[in-house]
Amino acid sequence: MDLAFIIALDVLNGAASLVLLCLGLAIIFGMMRVINLAHGEFVMLGAYATVISANAGLNIWIAMLVVAPLFVGVVGIVIERCLIRFLYGRLVDTMLATWGLSLLIVGLVTTLYGNTIKGVPTPLGGFSVGAYKSSYYTLFLAAVALVMLALVYVVMRRTRFGLVARATMQNPGMAATLGVNPSRIYMMSFGIGAAITGLAGGLLAPVSGVVPTMGAAYVAKAFITVVGGGSAILAGTASASGLFGLINQLGSYFTTPVFGEVILFISAIILIRILPQGISGRFFKGSL
């Protein structure tokens, strides 16, 4: 019983991390059809922002929840203005340029801070269930993931910006005719996507190894989750994260963590083959 509870917690943790990791990518991919291969490096930048400001004496919570998203959001807007906006509609070129960008960021961070950096301890304590131990931080991650999903839903459905953004997503030409500036909407959406990714990086900083190349571990996972989820930003991300989180954790439990990942990747490939439109293309048509 205790074991089942702990495994359930692990699954929750896996799904929550995936939601946090993918939401920003889903917004950028879903809104602009831009595949951002520097996504993993945005996560890394968020983690670095957190670690550096926390080590400089800032409160860890402020470092994670405020500094990381703000910093990466600004970086995202700068990148959109200097690079991405010249490449809209050229899918392959965007992938190449963002891949170049990811190498550039890794190189830059390595040059500035070297190959390792002092990490931050995991805040909040642990609790035990029978013979097993878990940490409150897991529950906190899950809560933040839920809040982020709710927040994106409210912004997209209930605010003027959300309405304009959804209109631009559906038909940029028509939106421009009605007086919207699509270029500005793209810039802001990219910034928001980057900020959410930075937040994910900040939140994952205490529980993962913070090194310049850490992004590579995330980009493929985030990528397949977004593609597996399909075009609906929220329903797709949430369902694919849940499914893949479950598969990954159960696979890791019954075999080894390495083969858990392998099982995750294989099931993702099969999913893409069966549902080329993603989960939301089949089951949640028309949802957000």
Binding site: G100, L104, G107
Partner: peptide, 18 residues
């Protein structure tokens, strides 16, 4: 040792794509 090869490769790729 002054700069990293990733930095140069990334910059080259971006310059060529653009």
């Amino acid at each position: 040792q002054t700069f990293n090869s990733n930095l140069a490769l990334g910059a080259i790729l971006i310059v060529f794509v653009l």
